[in-house]
Design a protein around this nucleic acid. Structure first.
Lengths: 245, 245
DNA sequence: CGGGGGGTTGATCTCCTTCAATCAACGTGG
DNA sequence: CCACGTTGATTGAAGGAGATCAACCCCCCG
């Protein structure tokens, strides 16, 4: 099941300049290289169960994973969306606090937890980068709290689309003939879990945004955005597109 | 307005073992001592406005502050509750992302941002502790996302009370004659902003919990908890009280 | 005494959920 | 090649949890 055969050189790694290793010098990278290994996961496969002992930490190399929390009665809330270069796991904690699931086929660059922690203690560049990434995630989580607590269903959908647009614009500048477009990496149900809605409401609001010309659909997953400012307006965000544009 | 006259020795500081300086050795503490200064804020006073240049970072020494986000039309969401020992500000960012407001009279132990960042680069114990605290906050933010996205109004209130109980049990073990009790550090409106509700709903649900014997009130702010397990059940948390008890 | 901030309670409304039917795309086996 | 089941998505009808609008209370303070 695990695919340990492929072993890409760190210097060739597509997430080299964004992941937890981004700040590392060549010698630091060499030490990381020695303790790293790749693991592949199939779409739908659970990577880590909440409460389990964490054997490893690592970076998403390709594919998309989600971080979710579930109540006993089955109510679910997604609390993070992990794109390539995002870090999985928590140094210093023995057990996972959330479920981590691959929503697409996924490759992770893993480090066994113990050696990684030791390396972190002697390699400030790793700890520095991890701190920076964690602070970014904390800011993102807090923006999401505004969405969950105060936004309407329509605003939530518009926000989700614009955030996905922003995030994968940061990864690979992509436009379809001058027109901005994104592929939703989530099913309607997963979107609902992310947005604190039901899947029916998600479906209805997407239809409504389409009817109102804010977005156009091509299939269920591919969204075109004729007017980004309009979308951001619908999202209710005071801040303009920021790093996008 | 600022009260620079008091200058407590770090070694005497009440938050010495929980704040960002917790891991520091004596010599590291001395260097922090040199760049620190105290500032007092009155209840209701804004400490930092979202978007402002951050001149300083620091720790809450006493009192309570909130982190809030506001949309143009006035909808507000609290995204953090800062108790003594919590860290304010973000090294590496020039401007604040959220409003920080004192809800009670408050004292902060401040460090000018630049010197602190320099100190951080040479003092791994500070960066380590900050990383640890940030990871804790991220976990807390993600638990709050479950609350905001999926919990009912009643569950939200019960969760808030049990979280406050847990947090100030961690600070100072306090029980009123064997019976667990907490003082709510927030007005009904502030609770509403924290929970993603209206103040009317907060008031109604508190009354309901009181009527059902889950809590008893003494005045508006003082809550007694006759049966903690019952409260946690109402909160819908699968995890038991954890560090409390 | 008047006024204001904080809190409670009531009546009504509405946005979203819930329950349910329908549909399209896809794969599988007869 | 077509019936069948499955999975993801859309749409409709009904109901409910919480929002909104509004009245009123309590207590402190000038």
């Amino acid at each position: 099941m695990h695919d340990h055969s492929v072993h890409v050189q760190c210097s060739e790694c597509p997430i080299r300049h964004r992941a937890v290793c981004a700040r590392c010098e060549t010698d630091e990278l060499n030490r990381l290289e020695q303790i790293k290994y790749y693991r592949s996961f199939q779409a739908g496969q659970t990577i880590i169960w909440s409460g389990d002992r964490m054997e490893f930490v690592g970076s998403v190399v390709s594919g998309i994973a989600t971080l979710t929390q579930t109540m006993e009665d089955g109510r679910r809330q997604m609390v993070g969306l992990l794109l390539p270069s995002d870090f999985v796991g928590r140094p210093g904690r023995a057990t996972a606090a959330f479920d981590v699931t691959a929503t697409t086929d996924l490759v992770m660059c893993c480090f066994r937890k113990k050696p990684f922690e030791e390396l972190m203690a002697t390699t400030p560049h790793i700890a520095q980068r991890l701190l920076e990434m964690t602070l970014d995630e904390l800011d993102a989580a807090r923006e999401w709290m505004l969405l969950l607590g105060r936004k309407t269903a329509r605003e939530k959908i518009a926000s989700l689309i614009s955030i996905i647009a922003r995030r994968d614009a940061a990864l690979h500048l992509r436009r379809a003939g001058g027109k901005l477009a994104v592929d939703l990496p989530l099913t309607r149900e997963e979107m609902a879990d992310y947005l604190g809605l039901t899947l029916e409401t998600v479906s209805r609001q997407i239809s409504a945004l389409k009817k109102d010309g804010v977005i156009t659909l091509e299939g269920n997953r591919h969204v075109q955005i004729p007017d980004l400012d309009r979308l951001l307006e619908e999202a209710g965000d005071d801040s303009d597109g920021g790093m996008l544009v």
